[in-house]
Structure formats: structure tokens, C-alpha cells
């Protein structure tokens, strides 16, 4: 019995000098994988225009009905995005979102993507419905407007 006790005590004593596995969470965060699916973000082209063209494919792809897109037509003098349409309102309901990433896959312009950010907790339901103010990227991305993809657009056809 004494040998077993000594063995057990030795085992725990060795642990005392090993590296601690604890990650002091708010100060240090566990590294996330490159493919981590966190909060959504709407990218901007390198010239600062929105990449979102209001196609609503993300909304269709969403299995949890978390995304709502209200598209509108661009003003040709002051366009929000290349092409005809842009997202006038874009809402992601974080309470519904299951972070599956299907919206990211559906996006034809690579605009919508999921970031590494995961601390989304909040105190009210309303504050968890993210609008464009919080979803839009803070700065332009590497993406440039592709050539010969967006048709020329001179304004509403009905007005011509």
C-alpha cells in the first residue's frame, strides 16, 4: 500500500512543476482556427464601395432565417456598390444565427464572411439584431472591383 501511495504522491508532485494549462480568458484568448465562424462582416472593395449587391442569396441560403436583406437601387451619381443594387438595410439576427457559414458560401461577391469575433453576448434581444452599422467592415479590403462583371448602369430603366 505504501508503494502505491508514494507513487501517487510522486505523480501529483510532478504535475506541480508542469506548465499550467489555464488560459486567463479575458486577457488571453485561445487561438481560433483560420476557418473559425464568428460574427458576420460585410466587406468593402479596395476603393471603399460596398461589395454587397443586395442579391439576397444569403437570406435564401440561411437555414435559420437569421438574415434579412432590404435591397434598393443605386443612385448612379453616388453609388453604394458597383452594379445595379445594394443592400439598403442588412440585418443579421444573432439570436437565430447558428454560425453554419452557408451565407458565406452563397455570397457571389465574397462580400459576406464570418470573422474570428465570438464574444457576442449582450443584455437585450434588440441589441443582438445587428444592422449594417455594425456589420459593415471598418476599412476597405484587398478585393478590387472585377472587370467586365458588373453591367454599366445609368439609372433606373423606367425613368429613361
Amino acid at each position: 500500500m505504501i508503494r502505491e501511495l508514494a507513487k501517487g504522491l510522486g505523480a501529483t508532485f510532478k504535475v506541480l512543476f508542469r506548465k499550467r494549462e489555464t488560459i486567463s480568458y479575458p486577457e488571453h484568448k485561445k487561438p481560433r482556427s483560420a476557418r473559425f465562424r464568428g460574427r458576420h462582416e460585410l466587406r468593402l472593395y479596395s476603393d471603399g464601395t460596398e461589395m454587397c449587391i443586395g442579391c439576397e442569396l444569403c437570406q435564401v441560403a440561411c437555414p435559420a432565417n437569421a438574415i434579412t436583406v432590404y435591397p434598393a437601387e443605386n443612385d448612379p451619381k453616388n453609388p453604394h456598390s458597383p452594379g445595379e443594387r445594394y443592400a439598403y438595410r442588412y440585418e443579421v439576427n444573432m439570436l437565430r444565427c447558428i454560425f453554419c457559414g452557408l451565407c458565406e458560401e452563397a455570397c457571389p461577391t465574397d462580400c459576406l464572411h464570418l470573422t474570428q469575433e465570438f464574444e457576442l453576448a449582450n443584455f437585450s434581444r434588440d441589441s443582438l439584431i445587428y444592422g449594417k452599422d455594425r456589420l459593415l467592415a471598418k476599412g476597405p479590403s484587398e478585393f478590387t472591383i472585377p472587370k467586365n462583371v458588373y453591367p454599366e448602369f445609368e439609372g433606373r430603366k423606367a425613368e429613361k
Binding site: 501529483t12 504535475v15 506541480l16 508542469r18 506548465k19 499550467r20 494549462e21 489555464t22 486567463s24
Partner: peptide
């Protein structure tokens, strides 16, 4: 603290 150290943890800090 020490129980933490004995279990790869930090204990209260």
C-alpha cells in the same frame, strides 16, 4: 491555489 497547481490550473487569481 495549490490544488490548482496540482491540476494544471492557476487557482484563484
Amino acid at each position: 491555489k495549490f490544488l490548482g497547481y496540482f491540476q494544471y490550473r492557476l487557482g484563484p487569481n
